[in-house]
C-alpha cells in the first residue's frame, strides 16, 4: 500500500493519537486529576486565560523581549563576523570567544547575572543576547568562509568598498547559514526567556509566559500549567513553520541556494 497521506497531514494524525491517549489515560487511567487533568479541563483553563487577556499580554511581553534581544544579537554577531573575515587577528579572537561561551547555557550564568545586573529586564536581555550571539556568530563565520574567494575578487574588480562586498556578496551568499543561525538563536532565546522568568519571577510590568507558568505552579493550577505549555508549543510551531519557513521560501529556496 502506497501512503497517500501527505507528510504534514501525518503530523496532525500523530498529534491526534497522542491527544486521544492522553484523554483516555486521564479519564480511565489510575492517575490523580490534580497532576493529570483531562483535555476538557485544560482547554477551558486555556480559554479562560485567553478571555481574560492574561496569557496574550504575557506572550506579547515575552515576544517583545525576544525580538529586541534577537535583533541586537544578530547585529552584534554580524559586526563580529564581518571584522573576522577581514582580519586574521580578529578571526582568532572571535573563535576563542565562541569556544569559551558557546557551551555555557544561559541558565547556568543566572547566579552571576543576578549579582551583576540584578533581576530586572536588563538581566533577561543579557541572557537572551548570550544565548543567541554565539550560535549566530558561529553560523555566520562558517557562512562567510563558505563564500568562494573568487566572489570576493569579483567584488574587488567592480571596485566595491568593504561594506559593499559585505552586503552585496557575503551576506546574500551565506544566507542559508544566517537563517540556520536565526533558527537556533530563536529557539535558544525562547528557552532562555522562559527559564529566566521562572527563576526570577516577573521582570517589569506583567511578566511573561514563564512567569505565567510559574504562577500556575505555585497556585497548584495544573490545568493552567498545561495551558501555558500548549501555548509555548503553539508559538514554537508557528514561528518555526510559518515565520522562518516563509522567509526561507522567499529567499534561499527561491534563489536556489538552499533546498
Amino acid at each position: 500500500m502506497k501512503s497517500k497521506i501527505k507528510k504534514e497531514h501525518l503530523k496532525f494524525i500523530w498529534i491526534f493519537v497522542l491527544l486521544a491517549v492522553w484523554e483516555l489515560t486521564a479519564r480511565f487511567g489510575p492517575v490523580n486529576p490534580i497532576s493529570f487533568p483531562s483535555l476538557a479541563v485544560i482547554a477551558s483553563a486555556l480559554w479562560e486565560s485567553v478571555i481574560t487577556g492574561d496569557i496574550i499580554s504575557q506572550i506579547w511581553f515575552s515576544m517583545g523581549f525576544i525580538l529586541t534581544g534577537l535583533l541586537t544579537a544578530i547585529i552584534l554577531s554580524l559586526v563580529l563576523a564581518s571584522i573576522s573575515t577581514f582580519s586574521e587577528l580578529m578571526d582568532s579572537f572571535t573563535d576563542t570567544l565562541v569556544s569559551v561561551f558557546h557551551p555555557l547555557p544561559g541558565i547556568a550564568m543566572l547566579p552571576l547575572i543576578i549579582l551583576w545586573f540584578g533581576t530586572g529586564s536588563k538581566a533577561i536581555f543579557i541572557i537572551i543576547i548570550h544565548s543567541v550571539i554565539w550560535p549566530m556568530l558561529l553560523n555566520l563565520k562558517s557562512g562567510f568562509k563558505s563564500v568562494p574567494e573568487i566572489y570576493r575578487k569579483i567584488g574587488q574588480n567592480y571596485e566595491h568598498s568593504m561594506a559593499g562586498i559585505l552586503f552585496k556578496i557575503f551576506i546574500p551568499a551565506s544566507l542559508p547559514f544566517g537563517l540556520a543561525g536565526i533558527k537556533i538563536g530563536w529557539a535558544r532565546a525562547w528557552r532562555a526567556v522562559i527559564s529566566a522568568e521562572m527563576v526570577f519571577g516577573a521582570t517589569g510590568g506583567k511578566g511573561g509566559i514563564g512567569w505565567y507558568i510559574f504562577n500556575k505552579r505555585v497556585f497548584m493550577d495544573t490545568p493552567g500549567l498545561f495551558a501555558g505549555l500548549i501555548v509555548i508549543i503553539g508559538i514554537g510551531i508557528l514561528v518555526e513553520d510559518l515565520v522562518i519557513g516563509k522567509i526561507e521560501n522567499s529567499t534561499v529556496k527561491k534563489w536556489g541556494t538552499s533546498q
Binding site: I114, G118, T119, G120, F200, G201, A202, K206
Partner: peptide, 22 residues
C-alpha cells in the same frame, strides 16, 4: 503582584543588599 521577584530568603537578602531594583 507584578512587582514580585521569587527569591529564597538568603538570595532575597543578597538582592536587597545589592541595591539594584529589589
Amino acid at each position: 503582584d507584578n512587582n514580585l521577584v521569587t527569591l529564597s530568603h538568603p538570595d532575597g537578602l543578597n538582592a536587597l543588599m545589592a541595591g539594584n531594583e529589589v
